[in-house]
Design a protein around this nucleic acid. Structure first.
Lengths: 340, 340
DNA sequence: TGCTCTTGCTAAATCAGTTTAGCGGCTTGT
DNA sequence: ACAAGCCGCTAAACTGATTTAGCAAGAGCA
């Protein structure tokens, strides 16, 4: 196993120099007065022996592990997480860092355990991620070292990365307005809890603000709105059913996420109505399902990868406190058309 | 930061004992002749100071890091990965280990980089995971330390964890037979490449074998089959369309995965046919979408969490070589009924 | 009394790096 | 001619744990 790994001492012996010299050369230290010839000998020896530094040993002295902890409530294993981790992974790789991941599953003792485990391993910093965009309080144990919140804010004013949901709401509404929809635009998925409790969601309120701003800028306002207990297909389904009983019928529906939109599609199909011929649909998230629906669903994507990437950059490069909003962009597909 | 972390020496000083004594006590070593009183003093001191061992320092000596590398082609960020990582994370936590993750994205240089990065950090072992169940060759650099393949096999005969797709195929077909379907069962999603090239897929062939075994045990055989270029909704859609032109029309369809089944649902809805009234549908994977469809789709689930868990157990406990098949179980929902 | 054994504990080596302090030899300035 | 400074390099300390080797005091035995 590692018993015969090549060490710095081996390289030094081979190069006929001291460990010090080898360390200085391999770390590319400026201002050492080692000769060009010594540099050559070190590089050659390291190359020939296939030397790789032992990071545990190094970090013992330097207190840098080139390792970042990615701690999340439950995000690490949801579809949602994919892009977040991918982006973080990419940015970490570019900076020669690796990611240690842990999931708290919302359990305080798991969380404590996870954080301890990470800190014991001397991570250089922690990315604390939430599945739903929301406000949270970070465990005090974390505050001792660099932290960046991902998809969350905290009262401590820690640096954080969030999607720009208000702009997304504006984009969604603006898109419908641009297609000629006006007074008969409905929203599916309003939810008092999500909109009023920042510890539950920040997205719901921000998206609504964006939608309402776009409408009032256009001199109009929301035609209908339906509240939903949760943002799941079944609630979208019944919400759309209830909308179809109202008159005038909406010409377009903004769904608070793609799963609701899926339910809305089902209800429209059951009623024999076509998208976008009879009703246009637009939504948020860009869940994989959005591209699979027929017609494909136009939706304002959560920028998972850029967010993950941004969090790592913020952590590693100077991270001034405060929030960073990452823009959300429209995936134009086929579910929006002018009203009949 | 870490400059004032409590060290073993601090605890020793406080307890009025040597570092050796403290180390022995805290590690619960048997056969030391330290007095009960010394034990008390050590525990008290450690507790009072909030001592936590520095794992980098420890691993320098012991060559154990309590860290596992989870290297995958692309699995880490797909929906697919969720359960795999979750299971691995759970099992790792139970054993006081953590997971270092990396993604190669199928790029050889990324892969080399990732593997080096993990080995430099002295991981105790590597889980090498694939997104699609398939055969692959593991990079030679890995062979120097413990490896378990997850969702993959290799010619090296390394220990590996795979879903039992043949049994899954048998279960799917058996379920339809039990409901009274017999000669008019169709398969959607046959694919020569997937079935014949183990480096592309092992699942396709295994599922087909299971299906055919169940049918021949019942003295019947496949009514129809449609080949698909890929297992995506659009191909399921056109496959089902073509099936509807044949006569006799199938009474039930086995889809090779849930995304195909989604397309099949769309085609049936377009044709005004009901599931399961006119056609029963059963599938594989248990993608989240399966539960969202109306009627909810019965499908044989890939046991992601147990697989991830199993991989960690295999790696940490004695891992005798050879393959472990993890059973796949049926999620009974509403898409299967007796033929009309 | 002298010898060995056990008991309870510790000094020092070790892991693989980084960093500090400084050593000879040569050049330069006065 | 002599001090000062530079050049090229190294010995040794240090990081925080584990582990080996062994010491001193007391007990047991002849």
């Amino acid at each position: 196993m590692g018993n015969n790994r090549v060490t710095l001492a081996d390289v030094a012996r081979r190069a006929g120099l001291s460990k010090t010299a080898v360390s200085l050369v391999l770390n590319g230290r400026e201002g050492t007065r080692l000769s060009a010839e010594a540099h050559q000998r070190v590089f050659a020896a390291a190359e020939e022996l296939g030397y790789r530094p032992n990071i545990a040993a190094r970090s013992l002295r330097t207190r840098k592990t080139a390792t970042i902890a990615f701690v999340s409530d439950v995000v690490a294993t949801t579809r949602f997480a994919g892009g977040l981790i991918r982006g973080a992974l990419d940015a970490a790789r570019e900076r020669n860092h690796v990611l240690l991941i842990a999931e708290t599953q919302g359990d305080t003792s798991f969380e404590q355990h996870a954080i301890d485990a990470m800190i014991d391993r001397q991570v250089d910093g922690v990315i604390y991620a939430a599945m739903a965009t929301r406000r949270l309080t970070v465990p005090p144990a974390l505050l001792a070292n660099p932290v960046v919140l991902l998809n969350a804010t905290s009262p401590d004013g820690l640096p954080c990365v969030l999607p720009d949901d208000e702009q997304a709401g504006h984009t969604a509404a603006r898109t419908l307005l641009d297609h000629g929809h006006r007074d008969r635009i409905a929203v599916v998925g309003r939810n008092r809890l999500k909109e009023h409790d920042p510890e539950v969601s920040l997205a719901a309120d921000a998206r609504m603000r964006g939608i309402q701003r776009a409408l009032s800028e256009a001199g109009t306002s929301l035609g209908h709105e339906v509240f939903c207990r949760d943002w799941l297909p079944e609630y979208g389904f019944s919400a759309m059913r209830s909308l179809l009983h109202r008159s005038p019928r909406p010409t377009a529906v903004i769904c608070m996420n793609d799963r609701l939109a899926f339910g809305v599609y089902q209800a429209l199909a059951d009623a024999g109505l076509g998208v976008p011929g009879d009703v246009s649909v637009i939504s948020f998230d860009d869940d994989p399902i959005a591209a699979w629906l027929r017609p494909a669903l136009s939706t304002v994507a959560i920028p998972h990868e850029p967010m993950g990437r941004r969090a790592v950059e913020l952590l590693l490069d100077g991270n001034t406190a405060g929030r960073r909003l990452v823009p959300m962009s429209l995936r134009r597909r086929s579910s929006v058309a002018p009203p009949a």
